[in-house]
Amino acid sequence: MTDMSVNKRAAILSFILLIGGLLLWEAAIPGQKAVGELTEYERLTGGGAQKAGVPPPSQVLEKAWEQLSDPFYDAGPNDKGIGIQIGYSIYRVLAGYFLAALIAIPLGFLIGMSPVAYKALNPFIQVLRPISPLAWMPLALFIIQDSETSAIFVIFICSIWPMLINTAFGVAGVRKDWVNVARTHELGALRTAFMVILPAAAPTIVTGMRISIGIAWLVIVAAEMLVGGTGIGYYVWNEWNNLDLTSVIFSILMIGVVGMALDAMFGVLQRFVVYSE
């Protein structure tokens, strides 16, 4: 009962903040315009060729409606629907991300199980981990000679560390009593790994995966601004070059929404593997 009312009150407050924020934003625009000329405002709302100036939310909403009602149109290299652009970005993120998971999780298992492997690999991890993923870009472009693959590589390199470290940490931290349960029941190495260590470490591993997907989504926007061609990052940059701020704001919001959705997916996975002692 109290719980319901807290949720309800929070929802109402969120809604008021949203409306209030939008109204404030809407109201602030004409004030800015007053410095320029009023006729420009007329032209802007008329939907003509746009020049500088932050658009009001009503215009952004209009843009959103227009874009989302036909998200997958393709009218040449510089004019694709928002759906196509986001699709490209998600494809790159997932490709790099799953490659990273494919390597990070088994390797993390090894490092977590073997103190020797941990000590041997730790210096490399410590040096490579703090490197900004974008710093790899020139080298990647030179070696791979393909901007698409380079972007995937950058995602790969930025998402590998949280997964690697969390997997190793989770595996090394599995309670000794649980491993002893496996030992006294004569479970082999493989069955111990899958029946005891993996479920015991799963919450930590999934936390690492969740951090990784968040970082990957942050990095893809920057990477696409650099490599160009397609993707939501390129789209933002392109619209900025066109001085279409309405589209810029709209795509910023879309980046947020997609990031939230990716994170929520891992939130569900996390709830699935979590256990309490």
Binding site: D177, N180, V181, V196, P199, Y275
Partner: peptide, 10 residues
């Protein structure tokens, strides 16, 4: 064992 001898996810 005194504690933790059950696997908590099962």
């Amino acid at each position: 064992f005194q504690n933790y001898s059950l696997l908590p996810w099962l």
